[in-house]
Design a protein around this nucleic acid. Structure first.
Length: 431
RNA sequence: GUGGCUAUGGUAUAACGGUUAUUACUCCGGUUUGUGGUACCGGCAAUUCGGGUUCGAUUCCCGAUAGUCACCCCA
């Protein structure tokens, strides 16, 4: 918030971005670690794609007429002729990677997870950043409904077990395969044309670019008319119906609660069959529930990106920032070890040799905290007191000469002198 | 992108248009240089930026910036 006087244009992070440090830093890392564990267990492996892509990856993949592509992409100024953009979402990038590396000749399906920043030029708000973090999971190369269920199941587990969110609602719908989708789209267009006077001007414009998105509209008059709009599941052909039913049956079997939401079609062009979103239900009515994540099947993506073959695929993305905001779960990562010993040094001689002693302890895997920048025993003991370390190691002039160190039990205020060579072993034995 | 609200040290806050800009926490240093949580003393540190009104602006007005809320959209 504080903006330095003479550098207001330079010394602040860009709008909608922020520095992540302290607890936030570790919680984000811890979340990833724990989510990763679940994914690895289910046989997924990691994928990290660049922060930028050629514009076509998203323009062709996600499709024009969506806000993401039309007005939220960051274009990068480059010296070359090709247009680069900061990636606004992961799915198209994942598919690009699959196609580029010929993954279709590997045993199918390819199962990938990953986490990283996404960029959208949106107006910032709570839980909405211009650089935000997503955890993604994708299964490419299989059209089986059980894959849809698995993806939903894992997302549900991550939200529940990792983030500790037990009030997650899953909204689900199906827009069917390409044919069903086309039929539905046609029917919707006809419906809206018939009621053209009842929908807002904005939605009339949408009608020509992407009629499915009119269903998403929040314009009051459109919301009203949408109540009588044809529902996508009415237009599912036999195959699509069977697929959707199988997904739901699998969810029932797993006892994952869901709500079928006929207005849920998701804005992006590439979705087919199953689409779903996760919401966190809040207790206080002042806060409206935030979308924590969403996803679906995108069998049409590969072809719309110019690939010669369809690649059936399904996946989700979770909004890490939003999850962090409401999660109260303990998310400390493995690297974050609570210190066992607080290292105190006294005098130049001892300070000089301190790092050698510390290296000794590091070699023995003993986590420490230190105050090498400080002088004075009282001061350092004071800091040790405030730390979480149960023991203090005092290494002073005398100890440095003798090749010993004092191990002090902070709570009981008792201490013992130990030889440096026995130090690690001695500390290990302490509870 | 549209509209509303907000903006004081690192954090949290006080100040009828006139104060050396309040207080607390944090942080740093000290209370006879080798044994601690308390206490005491001292120190660092702020009116977001740019205009305007006024003898005088933290205070009123306008603009910018940022945050926040609603819309939009979505993670």
């Amino acid at each position: 918030m504080a903006i330095p006087k003479n550098n207001k244009d330079l010394l602040q992070s860009p709008k909608g971005t922020r520095d992540i440090s302290g607890d936030d830093f570790y919680r984000k890392q811890g979340f990833f670690e724990k989510a990763q564990e679940i994914c690895e267990y289910y046989g997924f492996s990691g994928l990290e794609t660049p922060a930028m892509e050629y514009e076509n990856v998203f323009a062709k993949g996600v499709g024009a007429g969506t806000d993401i592509i039309d007005k939220e992409m960051y274009e990068i100024k480059t010296r070359g002729a090709n247009k680069l953009v900061l990636k606004p979402e992961q799915t198209a990038a994942t598919m690009r990677s699959y196609i580029e590396h010929g993954m279709q000749s590997q045993p199918q399906p390819i199962m990938w997870y990953g986490q990283g920043p996404r960029f959208r030029h949106d107006k910032p708000q709570r839980g909405r950043y211009r650089q935000f973090y997503q955890f993604d999971l994708d299964i490419l190369g299989s059209g089986k409904p059980i894959m849809d269920t698995m993806v939903i199941h894992i997302a549900y587990k991550i939200l529940g077990e990792v983030a500790g969110l037990d009030k997650t609602t899953i909204r689900i719908n199906s827009i069917g395969d390409k044919d069903s989708r086309k039929e539905y789209s046609k029917a919707l267009t006809a419906f809206y044309r018939k009621n053209i006077s009842s929908i807002s001007a904005k939605d009339r414009a949408r009608l020509s670019t992407n009629p499915l998105r009119v269903l998403d509209s929040k314009e009051p008059e459109t919301v009203e008319i949408n109540k009588t709009a044809p529902q996508s599941i009415e237009f599912l052909n036999t195959v699509s119906k069977k697929h959707f039913r199988a997904v739901l049956e699998n969810l029932d079997e797993l006892e994952i609660p869901y709500v079928i939401d006929h207005t849920l079609v998701r804005g992006l062009d590439y979705y087919t069959h199953t689409v779903f979103e996760f919401f966190n239900e809040t207790d206080n009515p002042d806060e409206k529930p935030l979308a924590l994540g969403g996803g679906g099947r995108y069998d049409g993506l590969a072809k719309s990106m110019g690939h010669n073959k369809e690649v059936p695929a399904v996946g989700f993305g979770l909004g890490v920032d939003r999850i962090m905001e409401i999660s109260t779960a303990d998310l400390s990562p493995k690297v974050r070890k609570s210190p066992k010993v607080f290292f105190i040094q006294l005098g130049d001689e001892a300070r000089m040799k301190s790092m050698n002693v510390i290296e000794e302890l590091r070699g023995a895997n003993i986590p420490i905290q230190h105050s090498l920048s400080k002088d004075g025993l009282s001061a350092q003991l004071g800091i040790a007191e405030k730390s979480d370390a149960p023991y203090a190691l005092i290494f002073g002039q005398k100890e440095a000469m003798d090749g010993t160190a004092i191990i002090r039990t902070l709570g009981e205020r008792k201490q013992k002198t130990v030889k440096i060579e026995d130090l690690a072993k001695y500390i290990k034995k302490l509870k």
